[in-house]
Every structure is written in C-alpha cells, then in structure tokens.
C-alpha cells in the first residue's frame, strides 16, 4: 500500500516536472474544441454535445496515455519491479491516468462552454452529468492504461495502442455517450439508471481485469 502511494506520488511529480507534456495535451484539447467551433459555429442539440464531448475525450485520453509506459525505459521498469508489486504499479498508473483524463475532460468541457455557451444545460441534470463525466474519464483511464501497457510490452510502438484500444473502448464510449446525453436531456435517475449500471460494470471489470492480468504482463 505504501508502495502504491509512493508510486502515485511519483507519477504526479513526474507529470509536474515535465510540464511541456501536460501543456501539449492541454493545447491539443483546446485546438480540438476550437476546430469544432470553427466548423460548427453553433451547437444546440444535446445529442451532438454528448457525442462531441466524448469524441474529444477519447482522443485526449489516447494522447495523454501514450507516454505512460513509454517514458520509462527498460531500466526504470526493472528497478520498479524489484521495489514494488506489479499490482501496485498498475493500480497507481491506472488511478493516476483516470485522474489525468478527468482533469483534461473537465478542461475540455470548460472550453466547450466557453465557445458554444451553456444553453444545452438548460434542462440538464447536473449531478448526473458530473458523475457521467467522472465515470467516463475513469473508464477511459483504466482501460487505456492497461492497453498501452500491453502495446508497450509487444514492442511495436504507439500504433498498436489504437488498434487494440479502439474495439475495446467502444462499449464504454457508447454507454457514456448515451448516459451523458440522457443527463443533458434531463432524464431522471430511474430512466438513466441502466446506462449508469452498465457504466459501473465496465469500469469495475476493466479495473479488475487490469489488476488480475497485469502481473503476467509485467514479468519478462
């Protein structure tokens, strides 16, 4: 447990030390939303909001996650392997990435509101929307952390993250778009509850599978 805490601290410290990487992803989010604004100008339909927010969220997560294993060379990983268990490594990375994606998606939401206004939130259920944003981001973080670990170990670079990640992430994406759009349209908790349930199942299963399978991935 202490190892996990230290590893989480290490991840955050590393991120803050390399501010250019964080700034790069932030810049990417801003540019994407701005391009959306330039090409659409107005965006009043809640369905389009739900879709666009998560398309942006998906590619942001892919971008932010690329460096999660890449930045540590083989030597660092060997060192970590001697210090901590594989589970605490993947748990720290998954939680850290979930946090990172949540922050980035909140930023992207701010940019969306900045450019397009807050009209679609007129009859939205805000607590549902925030929960959806959080659960979607953590789901993206958990799944993509594991997939990028797999792609990294295969040794064939960044391209494989997209190939392996896209099919695996689609179920989460469908559910989260549905849930968020429902929240924006003002559905009640009861009407939107099944989407929430699927979302929780997907989150839990991806975290659980990461914890179960990563030890096998980690050894060489």
């Amino acid at each position: 447990m202490t190892a996990f805490k230290e590893l989480l601290k290490k991840e955050i410290r590393l991120e803050l030390r390399q501010k250019h990487a964080l700034a790069g992803v932030g810049m990417y989010v801003l540019a994407t939303v701005f391009v959306c604004y330039l090409s659409l100008e107005t965006l009043e339909s809640q369905r389009l909001w739900g879709g666009l927010i998560w398309i942006t969220g998906l590619f942001t997560a892919f971008n932010a996650m690329q460096k999660t294993f890449q930045q540590e060379g083989g030597g660092t990983q060997l060192y970590l392997y001697t210090l901590a268990s594989a589970r605490s490594v993947i748990l720290s990375k998954a939680l850290y990435n979930a946090l990172l994606v949540s922050v980035l998606n909140t930023a992207s939401l701010m940019f969306f509101i900045l450019f397009f206004g807050e009209k679609p939130f007129a009859d939205a259920d805000l607590s549902q929307f925030v929960l959806g944003l959080l659960l979607g981001s953590t789901g993206l973080g958990f799944t993509l952390t594991f997939i990028s670990g797999l792609a990294y170990k295969s040794g064939s670079g960044v391209g494989l993250v997209a190939i392996l990640g896209f099919p695996v992430i689609i179920p989460l994406l469908i559910t989260i778009v549905r849930f968020t759009t429902g929240a924006l349209l003002g559905l009640t908790w009861l009407e939107n509850g099944l989407n929430l349930l699927v979302l929780v199942i997907l989150n839990a299963s991806s975290l659980l599978l990461s914890l179960l399978l990563f030890p096998y991935l980690w050894r060489d």
């Binding site: 797999l150 295969s154 494989l160 190939i163 896209f166 099919p167 695996v168 299963s205 096998y216």
Partner: peptide
Amino acid sequence: AYFILRNSVNDEEKRARLAAIFNIFAFVL
C-alpha cells in the same frame, strides 16, 4: 485486433502471454 497483436510479436513465449492477456480481456467484453 487479437490477430494483429499476435502478428506484431516475434518471440513465441511473449506472443503467447500477450495474446492470452488480450484474449481474456476481449472475452469478458
């Protein structure tokens, strides 16, 4: 994607391991 992953790893033991990990993930999904 499972078969693409298989083809991108040359070492047999590693291929078996990585493919198995992805396969379990895929089946649950």
